[in-house]
Design a protein around this nucleic acid. Structure first.
Lengths: 227, 227
DNA sequence: TGCGTTTGTTAGATTAATCAAACATTTTAT
DNA sequence: ATAAAATGTTTGATTAATCTAACAAACGCA
Protein backbone atom coordinates (compact mmCIF):
# COMPACT_ATOMS: atom_id res chain seq x y z
CA UNK A 1 0.00 0.00 0.00
CA UNK A 2 1.82 3.15 -1.07
CA UNK A 3 0.51 6.33 0.54
CA UNK A 4 -0.58 9.00 -1.88
CA UNK A 5 1.42 12.21 -1.70
CA UNK A 6 -0.05 15.34 -0.16
CA UNK A 7 -0.98 17.68 -2.96
CA UNK A 8 -2.27 21.22 -3.27
CA UNK A 9 -5.32 21.89 -5.45
CA UNK A 10 -3.00 23.58 -7.90
CA UNK A 11 -0.79 20.54 -8.20
CA UNK A 12 -3.89 18.41 -8.67
CA UNK A 13 -5.00 20.61 -11.54
CA UNK A 14 -1.67 20.15 -13.29
CA UNK A 15 -1.96 16.37 -12.98
CA UNK A 16 -5.48 16.44 -14.40
CA UNK A 17 -4.34 18.56 -17.32
CA UNK A 18 -1.47 16.18 -18.05
CA UNK A 19 -3.89 13.28 -17.95
CA UNK A 20 -6.21 14.92 -20.47
CA UNK A 21 -3.36 15.82 -22.77
CA UNK A 22 -1.85 12.32 -22.78
CA UNK A 23 -3.75 9.23 -21.58
CA UNK A 24 -7.10 10.74 -22.52
CA UNK A 25 -6.04 11.68 -26.04
CA UNK A 26 -4.14 8.50 -26.70
CA UNK A 27 -0.87 10.44 -26.75
CA UNK A 28 2.23 9.13 -25.00
CA UNK A 29 3.68 12.50 -24.02
CA UNK A 30 3.10 16.25 -24.23
CA UNK A 31 4.93 19.57 -23.79
CA UNK A 32 5.31 22.50 -21.43
CA UNK A 33 3.59 24.96 -23.76
CA UNK A 34 0.58 22.77 -24.42
CA UNK A 35 0.22 22.14 -20.71
CA UNK A 36 0.44 25.86 -19.98
CA UNK A 37 -2.11 26.70 -22.68
CA UNK A 38 -4.52 24.05 -21.42
CA UNK A 39 -4.40 25.51 -17.92
CA UNK A 40 -4.36 29.14 -19.00
CA UNK A 41 -1.04 29.89 -17.28
CA UNK A 42 2.31 31.03 -18.66
CA UNK A 43 4.89 28.48 -19.83
CA UNK A 44 7.13 29.78 -17.06
CA UNK A 45 4.60 28.78 -14.42
CA UNK A 46 4.10 25.36 -15.94
CA UNK A 47 7.85 24.85 -16.06
CA UNK A 48 8.21 25.75 -12.38
CA UNK A 49 5.42 23.37 -11.42
CA UNK A 50 6.87 20.55 -13.49
CA UNK A 51 10.09 20.74 -11.53
CA UNK A 52 8.15 20.40 -8.32
CA UNK A 53 6.04 17.51 -9.62
CA UNK A 54 9.21 15.78 -10.75
CA UNK A 55 10.64 16.10 -7.23
CA UNK A 56 7.53 14.36 -5.94
CA UNK A 57 7.87 11.65 -8.58
CA UNK A 58 4.49 12.49 -10.08
CA UNK A 59 5.84 13.15 -13.58
CA UNK A 60 8.59 11.74 -15.77
CA UNK A 61 10.30 14.78 -17.12
CA UNK A 62 13.70 16.08 -18.09
CA UNK A 63 15.00 19.42 -19.32
CA UNK A 64 14.05 19.98 -22.97
CA UNK A 65 13.01 16.34 -22.98
CA UNK A 66 9.95 14.15 -22.76
CA UNK A 67 7.09 14.85 -20.39
CA UNK A 68 4.45 12.46 -19.10
CA UNK A 69 2.74 11.32 -15.93
CA UNK A 70 4.63 8.80 -13.81
CA UNK A 71 2.88 5.66 -12.60
CA UNK A 72 2.05 7.41 -9.31
CA UNK A 73 0.95 10.54 -11.13
CA UNK A 74 -1.41 8.56 -13.32
CA UNK A 75 -2.88 6.92 -10.22
CA UNK A 76 -3.51 10.29 -8.59
CA UNK A 77 -5.07 11.64 -11.77
CA UNK A 78 -7.44 8.67 -11.92
CA UNK A 79 -8.58 9.30 -8.36
CA UNK A 80 -9.27 12.91 -9.29
CA UNK A 81 -11.20 11.83 -12.37
CA UNK A 82 -13.20 9.46 -10.20
CA UNK A 83 -14.01 12.18 -7.72
CA UNK A 84 -14.95 14.64 -10.48
CA UNK A 85 -17.31 12.25 -12.19
CA UNK A 86 -18.92 10.97 -9.02
CA UNK A 87 -19.72 14.54 -7.99
CA UNK A 88 -21.07 15.32 -11.47
CA UNK A 89 -23.33 12.29 -11.19
CA UNK A 90 -24.53 13.36 -7.77
CA UNK A 91 -25.31 16.90 -8.90
CA UNK A 92 -27.19 15.66 -11.94
CA UNK A 93 -29.11 12.82 -10.38
CA UNK A 94 -29.97 14.20 -6.98
CA UNK A 95 -29.68 17.97 -7.02
CA UNK A 96 -31.38 18.75 -10.34
CA UNK A 97 -28.37 20.26 -12.10
CA UNK A 98 -28.26 20.18 -15.93
CA UNK A 99 -25.35 18.51 -17.73
CA UNK A 100 -24.14 21.94 -18.76
CA UNK A 101 -23.86 23.07 -15.12
CA UNK A 102 -22.19 20.16 -13.36
CA UNK A 103 -18.62 20.51 -14.58
CA UNK A 104 -17.89 23.86 -12.97
CA UNK A 105 -19.05 22.84 -9.50
CA UNK A 106 -17.39 19.42 -9.73
CA UNK A 107 -14.11 21.22 -10.47
CA UNK A 108 -14.31 22.55 -6.93
CA UNK A 109 -15.73 19.47 -5.24
CA UNK A 110 -13.09 17.14 -6.66
CA UNK A 111 -10.45 18.75 -4.43
CA UNK A 112 -12.19 17.84 -1.16
CA UNK A 113 -9.92 15.50 0.79
CA UNK A 114 -11.81 12.64 2.40
CA UNK A 115 -11.55 9.06 1.19
CA UNK A 116 -14.63 8.13 3.21
CA UNK A 117 -16.66 10.88 1.53
CA UNK A 118 -15.97 9.49 -1.93
CA UNK A 119 -16.53 5.89 -0.91
CA UNK A 120 -19.86 6.79 0.71
CA UNK A 121 -20.97 8.97 -2.19
CA UNK A 122 -20.25 6.08 -4.54
CA UNK A 123 -22.26 3.74 -2.28
CA UNK A 124 -25.12 6.26 -1.93
CA UNK A 125 -25.57 6.38 -5.71
CA UNK A 126 -25.33 2.62 -6.18
CA UNK A 127 -21.80 2.63 -7.60
CA UNK A 128 -22.52 4.26 -10.96
CA UNK A 129 -20.25 3.25 -13.84
CA UNK A 130 -20.73 6.31 -16.03
CA UNK A 131 -21.34 10.00 -15.41
CA UNK A 132 -24.12 12.13 -16.94
CA UNK A 133 -21.93 12.86 -19.98
CA UNK A 134 -21.69 9.12 -20.67
CA UNK A 135 -18.04 8.96 -19.55
CA UNK A 136 -16.73 6.01 -17.53
CA UNK A 137 -16.03 6.51 -13.80
CA UNK A 138 -12.76 4.91 -12.63
CA UNK A 139 -13.37 2.49 -9.75
CA UNK A 140 -11.81 2.67 -6.29
CA UNK A 141 -8.88 0.51 -7.42
CA UNK A 142 -8.10 2.85 -10.31
CA UNK A 143 -9.51 0.59 -13.02
CA UNK A 144 -10.65 2.73 -15.88
CA UNK A 145 -12.18 1.51 -19.14
CA UNK A 146 -13.21 4.50 -21.21
CA UNK A 147 -16.16 3.64 -23.42
CA UNK A 148 -16.41 5.16 -26.90
CA UNK A 149 -18.68 8.18 -26.80
CA UNK A 150 -21.96 7.85 -28.69
CA UNK A 151 -23.48 10.62 -30.80
CA UNK A 152 -27.02 11.19 -32.03
CA UNK A 153 -25.68 10.09 -35.40
CA UNK A 154 -25.16 6.49 -34.32
CA UNK A 155 -28.37 5.95 -32.38
CA UNK A 156 -30.54 3.18 -33.85
CA UNK A 157 -33.94 4.16 -35.20
CA UNK A 158 -36.72 3.73 -32.68
CA UNK A 159 -34.36 3.90 -29.66
CA UNK A 160 -34.68 6.82 -27.26
CA UNK A 161 -31.95 8.92 -25.66
CA UNK A 162 -31.08 12.11 -23.82
CA UNK A 163 -28.42 14.67 -24.61
CA UNK A 164 -25.32 14.07 -22.48
CA UNK A 165 -23.02 16.79 -23.81
CA UNK A 166 -21.91 18.46 -27.02
CA UNK A 167 -18.66 18.39 -28.99
CA UNK A 168 -18.80 22.12 -29.79
CA UNK A 169 -19.96 23.79 -26.59
CA UNK A 170 -20.05 27.33 -27.99
CA UNK A 171 -22.83 29.57 -26.79
CA UNK A 172 -24.09 29.71 -30.40
CA UNK A 173 -24.60 25.96 -30.57
CA UNK A 174 -26.23 25.76 -27.16
CA UNK A 175 -28.63 28.52 -28.21
CA UNK A 176 -29.41 26.62 -31.39
CA UNK A 177 -30.31 23.58 -29.27
CA UNK A 178 -32.67 25.70 -27.23
CA UNK A 179 -34.30 27.14 -30.35
CA UNK A 180 -34.97 23.63 -31.63
CA UNK A 181 -36.69 22.88 -28.33
CA UNK A 182 -34.05 20.33 -27.35
CA UNK A 183 -34.26 20.55 -23.57
CA UNK A 184 -31.38 19.16 -21.53
CA UNK A 185 -33.52 16.39 -20.11
CA UNK A 186 -36.05 15.77 -22.89
CA UNK A 187 -36.29 12.36 -24.51
CA UNK A 188 -35.19 12.23 -28.12
CA UNK A 189 -35.97 9.55 -30.71
CA UNK A 190 -34.72 9.06 -34.26
CA UNK A 191 -37.82 8.89 -36.46
CA UNK A 192 -36.29 8.96 -39.93
CA UNK A 193 -32.85 8.87 -41.51
CA UNK A 194 -32.51 9.98 -45.14
CA UNK A 195 -29.85 7.92 -46.86
CA UNK A 196 -28.95 10.51 -49.51
CA UNK A 197 -27.45 13.06 -47.06
CA UNK A 198 -27.73 11.11 -43.78
CA UNK A 199 -29.86 13.87 -42.29
CA UNK A 200 -32.27 12.90 -39.50
CA UNK A 201 -35.74 13.66 -38.28
CA UNK A 202 -35.92 13.63 -34.49
CA UNK A 203 -38.99 13.14 -32.36
CA UNK A 204 -39.22 15.33 -29.25
CA UNK A 205 -42.44 15.62 -27.26
CA UNK A 206 -44.54 14.67 -30.33
CA UNK A 207 -42.80 17.29 -32.48
CA UNK A 208 -40.76 16.41 -35.57
CA UNK A 209 -37.38 18.18 -35.79
CA UNK A 210 -35.14 17.76 -38.87
CA UNK A 211 -31.39 18.07 -38.33
CA UNK A 212 -28.27 17.61 -40.48
CA UNK A 213 -25.70 14.83 -40.18
CA UNK A 214 -23.16 17.42 -39.06
CA UNK A 215 -25.51 18.45 -36.26
CA UNK A 216 -26.11 14.87 -35.15
CA UNK A 217 -22.39 14.16 -34.95
CA UNK A 218 -21.96 17.09 -32.63
CA UNK A 219 -24.38 15.83 -29.98
CA UNK A 220 -23.27 13.21 -27.46
CA UNK A 221 -26.04 11.07 -26.00
CA UNK A 222 -26.83 8.45 -23.40
CA UNK A 223 -29.39 5.86 -24.42
CA UNK A 224 -32.50 5.72 -22.24
CA UNK A 225 -32.94 2.68 -20.04
CA UNK A 226 -29.22 2.13 -19.50
CA UNK A 227 -27.23 3.51 -16.62
CA UNK B 1 -29.61 43.27 -3.42
CA UNK B 2 -26.02 43.84 -2.36
CA UNK B 3 -23.53 41.52 -3.99
CA UNK B 4 -21.39 39.55 -1.60
CA UNK B 5 -17.66 40.25 -1.83
CA UNK B 6 -15.31 37.69 -3.40
CA UNK B 7 -13.43 36.00 -0.62
CA UNK B 8 -10.59 33.52 -0.29
CA UNK B 9 -11.08 30.45 1.91
CA UNK B 10 -8.63 32.00 4.33
CA UNK B 11 -10.63 35.20 4.62
CA UNK B 12 -13.75 33.09 5.14
CA UNK B 13 -12.08 31.26 8.01
CA UNK B 14 -11.26 34.54 9.73
CA UNK B 15 -14.88 35.67 9.44
CA UNK B 16 -16.11 32.40 10.89
CA UNK B 17 -13.67 32.68 13.78
CA UNK B 18 -14.82 36.23 14.49
CA UNK B 19 -18.42 35.06 14.46
CA UNK B 20 -17.72 32.32 16.98
CA UNK B 21 -15.81 34.67 19.25
CA UNK B 22 -18.50 37.36 19.26
CA UNK B 23 -22.09 36.71 18.11
CA UNK B 24 -21.91 33.05 19.07
CA UNK B 25 -20.57 33.71 22.59
CA UNK B 26 -22.85 36.66 23.26
CA UNK B 27 -19.84 38.98 23.22
CA UNK B 28 -19.94 42.34 21.45
CA UNK B 29 -16.28 42.44 20.45
CA UNK B 30 -12.99 40.53 20.64
CA UNK B 31 -9.26 41.00 20.15
CA UNK B 32 -6.42 40.24 17.76
CA UNK B 33 -4.75 37.74 20.09
CA UNK B 34 -7.88 35.77 20.82
CA UNK B 35 -8.64 35.63 17.09
CA UNK B 36 -5.11 34.44 16.33
CA UNK B 37 -5.23 31.79 19.07
CA UNK B 38 -8.60 30.53 17.85
CA UNK B 39 -7.23 30.08 14.33
CA UNK B 40 -3.83 28.79 15.40
CA UNK B 41 -1.93 31.58 13.63
CA UNK B 42 0.38 34.28 14.98
CA UNK B 43 -1.04 37.62 16.14
CA UNK B 44 0.97 39.22 13.34
CA UNK B 45 -0.91 37.20 10.72
CA UNK B 46 -4.26 38.01 12.27
CA UNK B 47 -3.36 41.67 12.34
CA UNK B 48 -2.43 41.67 8.66
CA UNK B 49 -5.67 39.94 7.73
CA UNK B 50 -7.75 42.34 9.82
CA UNK B 51 -6.39 45.25 7.82
CA UNK B 52 -7.47 43.54 4.65
CA UNK B 53 -10.92 42.66 5.96
CA UNK B 54 -11.34 46.25 7.08
CA UNK B 55 -10.56 47.45 3.54
CA UNK B 56 -13.33 45.18 2.30
CA UNK B 57 -15.71 46.49 4.96
CA UNK B 58 -16.14 43.07 6.51
CA UNK B 59 -15.01 44.11 9.98
CA UNK B 60 -15.29 47.21 12.15
CA UNK B 61 -11.82 47.71 13.47
CA UNK B 62 -9.33 50.37 14.38
CA UNK B 63 -5.75 50.34 15.54
CA UNK B 64 -5.53 49.31 19.18
CA UNK B 65 -9.31 49.70 19.24
CA UNK B 66 -12.47 47.66 19.09
CA UNK B 67 -12.90 44.72 16.76
CA UNK B 68 -16.11 43.12 15.52
CA UNK B 69 -17.82 41.93 12.37
CA UNK B 70 -19.49 44.58 10.24
CA UNK B 71 -23.07 44.12 9.08
CA UNK B 72 -21.79 42.67 5.79
CA UNK B 73 -19.26 40.50 7.59
CA UNK B 74 -21.96 39.07 9.85
CA UNK B 75 -24.05 38.27 6.75
CA UNK B 76 -21.16 36.43 5.11
CA UNK B 77 -20.43 34.52 8.31
CA UNK B 78 -24.07 33.41 8.51
CA UNK B 79 -23.95 32.09 4.95
CA UNK B 80 -20.83 30.12 5.87
CA UNK B 81 -22.51 28.76 8.98
CA UNK B 82 -25.50 27.76 6.86
CA UNK B 83 -23.28 25.97 4.35
CA UNK B 84 -21.32 24.23 7.09
CA UNK B 85 -24.39 22.93 8.88
CA UNK B 86 -26.21 21.87 5.73
CA UNK B 87 -23.19 19.81 4.68
CA UNK B 88 -22.93 18.31 8.16
CA UNK B 89 -26.57 17.31 7.94
CA UNK B 90 -26.06 15.76 4.53
CA UNK B 91 -23.03 13.75 5.63
CA UNK B 92 -24.85 12.49 8.72
CA UNK B 93 -28.22 11.74 7.21
CA UNK B 94 -27.30 10.40 3.79
CA UNK B 95 -23.67 9.28 3.81
CA UNK B 96 -23.53 7.45 7.12
CA UNK B 97 -21.00 9.71 8.86
CA UNK B 98 -21.01 9.87 12.67
CA UNK B 99 -21.49 13.22 14.44
CA UNK B 100 -17.83 13.09 15.44
CA UNK B 101 -16.70 12.90 11.79
CA UNK B 102 -18.82 15.49 10.03
CA UNK B 103 -17.15 18.69 11.20
CA UNK B 104 -13.79 18.12 9.56
CA UNK B 105 -15.20 17.38 6.12
CA UNK B 106 -17.78 20.18 6.36
CA UNK B 107 -14.89 22.57 7.04
CA UNK B 108 -13.75 21.87 3.50
CA UNK B 109 -17.16 21.68 1.83
CA UNK B 110 -18.34 25.00 3.26
CA UNK B 111 -15.89 26.83 0.98
CA UNK B 112 -17.42 25.52 -2.26
CA UNK B 113 -18.78 28.47 -4.23
CA UNK B 114 -22.17 27.76 -5.79
CA UNK B 115 -25.38 29.34 -4.55
CA UNK B 116 -27.40 26.82 -6.53
CA UNK B 117 -25.59 23.92 -4.86
CA UNK B 118 -26.58 25.10 -1.39
CA UNK B 119 -30.15 25.90 -2.38
CA UNK B 120 -30.56 22.45 -3.95
CA UNK B 121 -28.91 20.66 -1.06
CA UNK B 122 -31.31 22.41 1.31
CA UNK B 123 -34.25 21.37 -0.89
CA UNK B 124 -32.97 17.79 -1.24
CA UNK B 125 -32.96 17.36 2.55
CA UNK B 126 -36.36 18.98 3.05
CA UNK B 127 -35.02 22.26 4.42
CA UNK B 128 -33.74 21.03 7.78
CA UNK B 129 -33.80 23.54 10.63
CA UNK B 130 -31.11 21.98 12.78
CA UNK B 131 -27.92 20.04 12.14
CA UNK B 132 -26.92 16.69 13.70
CA UNK B 133 -25.41 18.50 16.70
CA UNK B 134 -28.79 20.11 17.41
CA UNK B 135 -27.62 23.55 16.26
CA UNK B 136 -29.91 25.82 14.24
CA UNK B 137 -29.24 26.24 10.51
CA UNK B 138 -29.52 29.88 9.31
CA UNK B 139 -32.05 30.17 6.47
CA UNK B 140 -31.35 31.51 2.99
CA UNK B 141 -32.23 35.04 4.09
CA UNK B 142 -29.75 34.93 6.94
CA UNK B 143 -32.33 34.48 9.68
CA UNK B 144 -30.74 32.65 12.57
CA UNK B 145 -32.39 31.72 15.82
CA UNK B 146 -29.95 29.69 17.88
CA UNK B 147 -31.80 27.29 20.15
CA UNK B 148 -30.42 26.54 23.62
CA UNK B 149 -28.45 23.31 23.53
CA UNK B 150 -29.91 20.42 25.47
CA UNK B 151 -27.87 18.01 27.56
CA UNK B 152 -28.64 14.54 28.84
CA UNK B 153 -29.09 16.22 32.20
CA UNK B 154 -32.25 18.04 31.17
CA UNK B 155 -33.99 15.24 29.29
CA UNK B 156 -37.35 14.27 30.83
CA UNK B 157 -37.66 10.75 32.20
CA UNK B 158 -39.13 8.31 29.73
CA UNK B 159 -38.16 10.43 26.67
CA UNK B 160 -35.63 9.03 24.22
CA UNK B 161 -32.69 10.76 22.56
CA UNK B 162 -29.45 10.35 20.68
CA UNK B 163 -26.06 11.87 21.39
CA UNK B 164 -25.50 14.95 19.21
CA UNK B 165 -22.10 16.10 20.46
CA UNK B 166 -20.09 16.54 23.63
CA UNK B 167 -18.89 19.58 25.56
CA UNK B 168 -15.48 18.08 26.27
CA UNK B 169 -14.42 16.34 23.07
CA UNK B 170 -11.15 14.96 24.43
CA UNK B 171 -10.11 11.54 23.27
CA UNK B 172 -10.39 10.35 26.87
CA UNK B 173 -14.03 11.28 27.11
CA UNK B 174 -14.90 9.80 23.72
CA UNK B 175 -13.21 6.55 24.78
CA UNK B 176 -15.21 6.58 27.99
CA UNK B 177 -18.40 6.85 25.94
CA UNK B 178 -17.36 3.85 23.89
CA UNK B 179 -16.55 1.83 27.02
CA UNK B 180 -20.02 2.53 28.37
CA UNK B 181 -21.43 1.18 25.11
CA UNK B 182 -22.84 4.57 24.13
CA UNK B 183 -22.80 4.27 20.34
CA UNK B 184 -23.06 7.44 18.31
CA UNK B 185 -26.43 6.48 16.93
CA UNK B 186 -27.90 4.38 19.76
CA UNK B 187 -31.14 5.44 21.44
CA UNK B 188 -30.79 6.50 25.02
CA UNK B 189 -33.49 6.83 27.66
CA UNK B 190 -33.42 8.20 31.19
CA UNK B 191 -34.69 5.40 33.44
CA UNK B 192 -33.99 6.86 36.89
CA UNK B 193 -32.76 10.08 38.44
CA UNK B 194 -31.53 10.03 42.04
CA UNK B 195 -32.41 13.26 43.78
CA UNK B 196 -29.59 13.17 46.34
CA UNK B 197 -26.74 13.57 43.80
CA UNK B 198 -28.74 14.01 40.59
CA UNK B 199 -26.98 11.01 39.05
CA UNK B 200 -28.86 9.11 36.33
CA UNK B 201 -29.45 5.60 35.15
CA UNK B 202 -29.63 5.40 31.38
CA UNK B 203 -31.27 2.71 29.31
CA UNK B 204 -29.38 1.66 26.18
CA UNK B 205 -30.35 -1.47 24.23
CA UNK B 206 -31.95 -3.02 27.34
CA UNK B 207 -28.84 -2.36 29.43
CA UNK B 208 -28.82 -0.11 32.50
CA UNK B 209 -25.91 2.35 32.64
CA UNK B 210 -25.42 4.63 35.67
CA UNK B 211 -23.73 7.99 35.07
CA UNK B 212 -22.96 11.06 37.18
CA UNK B 213 -24.60 14.48 36.88
CA UNK B 214 -21.28 15.85 35.67
CA UNK B 215 -21.24 13.28 32.91
CA UNK B 216 -24.81 14.04 31.83
CA UNK B 217 -24.09 17.76 31.62
CA UNK B 218 -21.25 17.05 29.25
CA UNK B 219 -23.39 15.24 26.66
CA UNK B 220 -25.46 17.23 24.17
CA UNK B 221 -28.50 15.42 22.77
CA UNK B 222 -31.28 15.65 20.22
CA UNK B 223 -34.62 14.25 21.34
CA UNK B 224 -35.93 11.40 19.20
CA UNK B 225 -38.97 12.09 17.07
CA UNK B 226 -38.10 15.74 16.48
CA UNK B 227 -36.11 17.02 13.53
C1' DT C 1 0.53 58.11 39.26
C1' DG C 2 3.52 55.32 37.41
C1' DC C 3 5.44 50.74 36.26
C1' DG C 4 4.80 46.06 34.72
C1' DT C 5 1.93 42.93 32.19
C1' DT C 6 -1.03 42.12 28.59
C1' DT C 7 -2.35 43.16 24.19
C1' DG C 8 -1.59 44.85 19.62
C1' DT C 9 1.45 46.42 15.69
C1' DT C 10 5.37 46.79 12.58
C1' DA C 11 9.44 45.24 10.13
C1' DG C 12 11.64 41.94 7.50
C1' DA C 13 11.80 37.11 5.76
C1' DT C 14 9.72 32.89 3.74
C1' DT C 15 6.80 29.94 0.70
C1' DA C 16 3.64 28.80 -3.16
C1' DA C 17 1.99 30.31 -7.28
C1' DT C 18 1.99 33.45 -10.65
C1' DC C 19 3.86 36.77 -14.54
C1' DA C 20 6.80 39.14 -18.46
C1' DA C 21 10.92 39.35 -20.72
C1' DA C 22 15.26 37.58 -21.88
C1' DC C 23 17.66 33.64 -23.10
C1' DA C 24 18.64 28.64 -24.64
C1' DT C 25 17.68 24.51 -27.11
C1' DT C 26 15.47 21.72 -30.53
C1' DT C 27 12.94 21.15 -34.72
C1' DT C 28 11.74 22.24 -39.33
C1' DA C 29 12.35 23.62 -43.82
C1' DT C 30 14.74 25.27 -47.44
C1' DA D 1 23.76 22.48 -43.14
C1' DT D 2 22.04 26.24 -41.38
C1' DA D 3 18.81 29.88 -40.41
C1' DA D 4 14.19 30.76 -38.88
C1' DA D 5 10.47 29.13 -36.11
C1' DA D 6 8.82 26.70 -32.40
C1' DT D 7 9.45 25.16 -27.99
C1' DG D 8 11.36 25.27 -23.39
C1' DT D 9 13.96 27.59 -19.46
C1' DT D 10 15.76 31.13 -16.42
C1' DT D 11 15.65 35.47 -14.07
C1' DG D 12 13.66 38.75 -11.31
C1' DA D 13 9.15 40.68 -9.64
C1' DT D 14 4.53 40.33 -7.57
C1' DT D 15 0.76 38.70 -4.42
C1' DA D 16 -1.35 36.22 -0.50
C1' DA D 17 -0.51 34.14 3.59
C1' DT D 18 2.42 33.04 6.93
C1' DC D 19 6.36 33.50 10.60
C1' DT D 20 9.73 35.60 14.39
C1' DA D 21 11.47 39.28 16.78
C1' DA D 22 11.30 43.87 18.05
C1' DC D 23 8.54 47.63 19.28
C1' DA D 24 4.28 50.46 20.99
C1' DA D 25 -0.04 51.24 23.29
C1' DA D 26 -3.45 50.20 26.80
C1' DC D 27 -4.68 48.33 31.17
C1' DG D 28 -4.50 47.30 35.82
C1' DC D 29 -3.29 47.79 40.24
C1' DA D 30 -0.42 49.14 44.23
Amino acid sequence: MNTLPEMSSTEENYLKALFHLTVDQGETETGTNRLAAHLGVSPASANAMLKKLKEKNLVDYERYGKLQLSETGRGSALILLRKHRLWETFLYRHLGFGWDEIHEVAEQLEHIRSPKLIEQLDWFMGRPRTDPHGDAIPDAEGEYHPAPKRTLDDLDMGKKCRIASVRDSSVAFLQYLTELGLGLRSEIEVLERRSFDRSLVLGIDDRRVPVSERFAQNVFIVESGLD
